[in-house]
Computed example of a mutant assay.
Amino acid sequence: MTVLVGYVPSPEGEAALRAAIGEARRRGEKLLVVNTTRGDALVDSRFAQEPDLTRVREDLAALGIDFDVRQVLGARDAAEEIIDLAERVGASLVVIGLRRRSAVGKLIMGSAAQHILLGADCPVLAVKAEG
């Protein structure tokens, strides 16, 4: 089986990655790191650049983790991509990072985390960044 982590280059993404590494080790499973964007914005801070992904690959290799890194550029939102990919790979767990948002922000923009929590067929571990 596989532990899937939704990764973004942010403190929340790093917290999710750390938690996912721990879960993959504890379970003896492969780690799938996923970074995705719709590609509909000129600048998307959640879309990892190559230096970010290179660092993630090097860190995971140094830790001896069995892993794969996928970057998805598609027409769907990140939550849908993660839910569908988790189902396709038979993920035993999805790990996501949470960030603090106001109630109005959630109402207007929606919540990818909430969509994943409610839509995934497997357990979801949601973590916050330290501090």
Rank of each mutant, 00 (worst) to 15 (best):
E23Q: 15
G13N: 00
Q114Y: 09
I65C: 08
G22I: 07
P51W: 05
I96Y: 01
E81W: 02
L63A: 15
A19K: 09
R55E: 15
M1G: 14
D121K: 15
L53T: 03
D40W: 12
G13F: 01
V89Y: 06
L53C: 06
M1I: 00
P11N: 13
G64L: 11
C122I: 06
I108Y: 12
G97H: 10
I82N: 02
F67L: 11
G97Q: 08
D40N: 14
S92A: 14
A61F: 06
S45C: 01
V5I: 07
V5G: 01
K128S: 12
G39S: 05
S45E: 14
K30H: 15
A86H: 09
D66H: 09
L42N: 07
A48F: 05
G119E: 05
G105A: 15
T36Y: 00
D84S: 13
E29N: 02
R101T: 12
A78D: 01
R99G: 03
E12M: 05
M1Y: 07
A126K: 02
L42C: 04
L53H: 02
L42M: 13
T37F: 05
R76T: 14
K106H: 15
A129C: 12
T37Q: 01
Y7K: 02
I21F: 07
G97R: 03
L98R: 13
L117E: 07
A19V: 04
S111A: 14
D66E: 14
A62L: 10
A61C: 03
D68K: 03
F67Q: 11
T2K: 14
G22R: 09
T36C: 10
G22T: 06
D68F: 02
H115L: 11
E29F: 05
R57S: 13
A41I: 08
I82F: 04
L53Y: 02
G90W: 07
G110W: 12
L31R: 06
L42W: 11
L85E: 11
L42T: 09
A62I: 09
L32G: 00
S10D: 03
K128Y: 10
G22L: 04
P11T: 07
R26S: 13
L32F: 02
D77I: 11
A15K: 07
R70S: 12
V33F: 08
D52C: 07
R55I: 06
S111V: 10
V94Q: 02
A75Y: 14
K30Q: 15
P51T: 07
V34P: 00
S111N: 11
D59V: 11
R88F: 07
K106C: 09
P51C: 08
C122H: 06
I21T: 11
L118A: 15
E80S: 15
A103I: 13
S111L: 12
L73R: 14
E50W: 13
